[in-house]
């Protein structure tokens, strides 16, 4: 009889173990967006729209960097282009393609404005952002011990 209760106890432990293990798998994991996804949020939050998420990986399958960064004049700086909807509907920046001809048109607000509200402008997975401490700065040549 005693042996039986003990066995149930062991089973309970085993069951708990399985449940906790499954639970552990379902726990939210550290966020990891695709490398080079750009969140653009200079104005969106303030205007009550979700921030914009621009996926580099998706666009570079279709276009070389040259198209956007030389021809269309996107500067190499997240948030550095001061993009607004007025410029987009005038055919600048995203609007050079998201015009219903090269790609779907601007009425698909949610496709671009898909970020979590409050996310600051940044480029995800960048080396600087992943450093565990501020980056090492080179010695100033003048201040080096002679």
């Amino acid at each position: 009889m005693r042996a039986k209760t003990e066995r149930t106890a062991v089973w309970k432990i085993a069951l708990f173990g399985v449940l906790a293990w499954v639970g552990g798998l379902m726990m939210p994991q550290p966020a990891q967006a695709e490398y080079a996804d750009v969140v653009i949020n200079n104005y969106a939050d303030a205007a009550g729209m979700r921030p914009v998420v621009f996926p580099h990986w998706y666009h570079r399958i279709r276009f070389r960097c040259k198209v956007c960064h030389a021809d269309l004049g996107f500067k190499f700086k997240a948030g550095g282009n001061k993009i607004t909807m007025a410029k987009i509907i005038d055919g600048k920046f995203c609007g050079a393609c998201h015009n219903g001809e090269i790609s779907w048109s601007v009425e698909n607000c949610g496709m671009c404005h898909s970020g979590i509200p409050g996310t600051p402008t940044h480029i995800s997975g960048s080396t600087v952002q992943r450093l565990v401490a501020p980056a090492y700065k080179a010695l100033d040549k003048n201040k080096q011990v002679q």
Binding site: Q32, D37, V53, P55, M111, S114, I116, S124
Partner: peptide
């Protein structure tokens, strides 16, 4: 991925 809002339906079309 932690940056896309799941309350936005279009997120699931990406």
């Amino acid at each position: 991925d932690g940056i896309h809002d799941t309350a936005n339906e279009a997120t699931f079309a990406l």
